[in-house]
Amino acid sequence: MWDYTEKVIEHFRNPRNVGEIKNPDAVGEVGNIICGDALRLTLRIDKKTDKIIDAKFQTFGCASAIASSSVLTEMIKGMTVNQASKVTNKDIADYLGGLPNEKMHCSVMGMEALRAAIGNHKGAPLKKEIVGQEKIVCKCFSVTDKKIISTIKENNLKTVEQVTNYTKAGGGCGKCKSEIEKLLKEFWEKEVTKGVYQKKEPPKKKLTNLQRISLIQDTIEREIRPQLKADGGDIELVDVDRNKVYVKFSGTCLGCPATEVTLKALIESKLKEFVEEDIMVEEVKEWE
């Protein structure tokens, strides 16, 4: 028997915001019936304030999946899209007073549905096809390398067992466990060489031009590009002029009305965090 918190049980028995918003402003769908859990999230977003004014869910899954979906809708109502984009699976699990390790994937599903809905709001197609370099690692639950790596990163996972708990990958026939092990090893080796933990603290010393440019490139590669790619977009560094950074969008980012938000919320804030506090980012448009 799972050791569920009272909050999980309470939300499972009395789920909030069950259903579907008619003509929603955003839809996020993740999982499928074969995997054992699936979530369809529909949002009503106020165009003026960019606030989520209503959220409803439909979930196929166990008690923790239903409870995670229910609290997710409760948490994001009243948030701006930008605020909601920062909600993580940890926030969902914390709100529930914790989830059993084996059930963490339910909170990940909540976060994924939310991000899919936000992507959809910004113009991404509803169903993301698996494209490019993504590869299905776990055939039983259709989990891609991209999802595994991003979950390792966001939740600081160190073992194959943890990856299974958070993504379900490896939980079926178990044949992909050695591949998961390899992904873990590769990820953490890269992190160590990057010294990502030391870099969390912005350098205090004034940077030289060369240092600044290389740090900007590094941060784009590591922190920004993967997130844009998740929504089918991409970014190119055009120029750096002292504290001004010029970038060009491509992919689904092109013509997306949300690029302004992305520019400030994601790119500029990451560069401020990892490079220098006074950095300003500007978009270079193709036709300029």
């Binding site: 799972w2 028995r13 859990d37 899954g61 166990c62 008690a63």
Partner: peptide
């Protein structure tokens, strides 16, 4: 269209003890 663990927990609330072959259990 429904998942076994969720069914079991709702049965449990009614004092019915059964089991399931679902993945989640």
């Amino acid at each position: 269209f429904v998942e076994g663990e969720a069914i079991l927990l709702m049965l449990d609330e009614k004092g019915i003890a059964a089991s399931s072959g679902s993945a989640c259990t």
